[in-house]
Amino acid sequence: MDDDGIRVLGRGDLADFLALTAQDRVVNVFAEHRARATALDPRWLGGEVWGRFEGDVLVAACHVAANLVPVGCDPDDVRRFARHALRHGRRASTVVGEHDLVAAFCDELDGAWGPARDERWSQPHLEYVGPPRVAPDPLVRHSRADDVEALHPACVAMYTEEVGVSPEAGGGAEAYLARVRQLVSRGWSWARYDADGQVEFKAEVACASPWAAQVQGVWVRPDLRGQGLAVAGMAAVAESVRREVAPVVSLYVNEWNAPARAAYEKVGFVETARFATVMW
Rank of each mutant, 00 (worst) to 15 (best):
A276L: 00
P222S: 12
A39T: 09
R25M: 10
D146W: 05
A135T: 01
D77E: 02
L109E: 00
G47A: 10
D100R: 00
D2P: 06
A232N: 11
T160V: 08
P138I: 12
G164W: 02
A262Q: 12
A246R: 11
V218S: 13
D118E: 05
R144D: 09
L20G: 06
E48Y: 12
V267E: 13
V253W: 05
A92E: 13
A230G: 00
V102R: 00
V71N: 04
A112L: 00
D16R: 04
E162N: 10
V231F: 06
A85Q: 10
W219A: 09
A22Q: 13
R43I: 04
L251D: 14
V205T: 03
R141C: 04
Y176F: 15
H142F: 14
R242L: 02
G10H: 04
G171H: 07
P131N: 13
F105A: 02
D74G: 06
V245T: 08
P167G: 08
F269R: 01
L101N: 02
Q227P: 03
V245D: 08
D194C: 11
F269P: 00
R120C: 00
R25H: 14
D107S: 05
L139F: 06
G187L: 07
F275W: 03
D4L: 01
L20P: 07
L40W: 08
A232S: 15
L183N: 13
A235R: 07
G217V: 05
G217E: 01
A258W: 05
P153H: 12
R186L: 15
V163F: 15
A238W: 10
A39Q: 15
T272L: 09
G114Q: 01
A35W: 14
A116F: 06
Y176M: 10
V180E: 04
H125F: 07
P115W: 01
G164K: 02
G46C: 12
R181T: 01
S250N: 10
D74N: 03
R181P: 02
S189V: 07
A145D: 11
D13M: 04
S240T: 06
V220D: 08
W50R: 06
D118G: 00
R25I: 08
G47R: 09
V163K: 13
G111E: 06
A212P: 08
W188R: 10
L139G: 05
W113Y: 13
Q227D: 01
A82T: 03
R117W: 07
D56K: 10
L40P: 09
A145L: 04
V102D: 01
T21C: 01
M234S: 10
V129D: 11
D77F: 01
A235V: 09
Q216L: 06
Y264T: 08
M234A: 09
L224G: 11
A273D: 15
G197L: 14
G164M: 01
L177H: 15
R179Q: 11
P70V: 01
A35S: 14
E244N: 14
A19V: 13
V57C: 09
G233D: 01
M234I: 14
